[in-house]
């Protein structure tokens, strides 16, 4: 009798787990499907034009003010796409050398107590909410850029720019790069520290035993041996950068501008809008079906990017395992 009761209990337990697992799976599937369905309205009209054409800000404005029948379902986010790539690439360019350099010092060239303190400070910074980076960016970085690089003449010149009128307020691509770079640097450093620490100690002993200098052992042996970990760290940081919405919407301006190389240094001073921050920026207009669909389409592009990233880390892991 008793064992029968136990079996029933065991069965119930199993089915509770099954139900929650199935619900979890359905939920995840539902999220993806829901987002793709919502995005379909715009994506089916825009096609590849969604990322190869410009004019997102104007299209949003038009959709918002026109009556339901006359709205455009065509959106072009080339500007957002380029801005996303530029901010993330710029942030990586800033954060990767600093992060790896710091990790090398923390792991190999500092006193134990200092190293421990440093790595706990870095881990703490990695968990600071992005809103705080946004706030500091807005209060410190943006005014700094405005005061040191943007003269009133320059402002007037671009306010009446024939192609794209814009206000140079300090909220700019440069501010976005700096804030994002500072934001992902601790994550990158922490992951690099982990990757270097995971390298077997015997490699270091062997290298030093061969009379190779400590520095050379680090650069020629330890870092190459840690490269899959480094790569995973960079991908994760890039993913964080691409998905960052709030901090960038605070410091990089709000119009879907494609920075022009022809503008020289002003390239970095023009405002930009990234895919993720566009969603924050335009979410108030989401009650309009076309705009809702356009924002979900931005979401789809973001999901596809994060898919690509998680796939590439998996491929690297597999390649390393095969070795």
């Amino acid at each position: 009798m008793k064992s029968n009761k136990r079996m029933v209990k065991d069965n119930i337990f199993k089915h509770i787990l099954l139900v929650s697992a199935v619900l979890g799976g359905l939920m995840i599937a539902f999220i993806f499907v829901f987002i793709f369905i919502k995005a379909w309205g715009v994506l089916s009209v825009s096609g590849l034009g969604f990322i190869t054409e410009t004019g997102f800000s104007e299209q949003i404005r038009d959709s918002y003010y026109l009556a339901a029948g006359e709205q455009t379902w065509f959106f072009g986010t080339k500007g957002l796409f380029i801005a996303t790539l530029l901010t993330t690439a710029g942030a990586l360019l800033l954060a990767v050398p600093l992060g790896i350099g710091t990790a090398v010092i923390v792991c190999e060239f500092s006193h134990r107590a200092i190293a421990r303190m440093l790595s706990s400070v870095i881990r703490l910074l990695a968990s600071i909410p992005s809103i705080i980076y946004g706030l500091i960016g807005l209060m410190v970085v943006v005014p700094y850029i405005k005061d040191s690089f943007i003269s009133p003449e320059l402002q007037i010149q671009y306010l009446y720019d024939p192609i794209m009128r814009m206000q140079l307020s300090g909220k700019s691509l440069l501010a976005g790069i700096i804030v994002l770079g500072i934001m992902i640097m601790p994550i990158l450093t922490a992951l690099t520290v982990d990757a270097i620490k995971a390298v077997p100690k015997s490699y270091k002993e062997a290298g030093l035993g061969l009379g190779i200098s400590h520095w050379r052992v680090v650069t020629k042996i330890l870092l190459p041996a840690a490269k899959s970990g480094l790569f995973a760290g960079i991908i994760l940081a890039a993913g964080r950068g691409i998905g960052e919405a709030i901090a960038l919407s605070m410091v990089s301006g709000g119009i879907s501008n494609v920075p022009q190389v022809a503008h020289g240094g002003v390239f970095f001073l023009t405002p930009v809008l990234t895919l993720a921050s566009a969603i924050v920026n335009k979410s108030e207009a989401m009650s309009v079906a076309a705009i809702e669909s356009a924002l979900f389409s931005c979401g789809v592009v973001l999901i596809l990017t994060s898919m690509l990233f998680s796939l590439s880390t998996r491929l690297v892991e597999r390649a390393v395992k095969m070795k």
């Binding site: 969603i279 924002l295 973001l302």
Partner: peptide, 8 residues
């Protein structure tokens, strides 16, 4: 996936 996507 960025949280902003989950938010919308």
């Amino acid at each position: 996936v960025p949280t902003i996507v989950i938010a919308i």
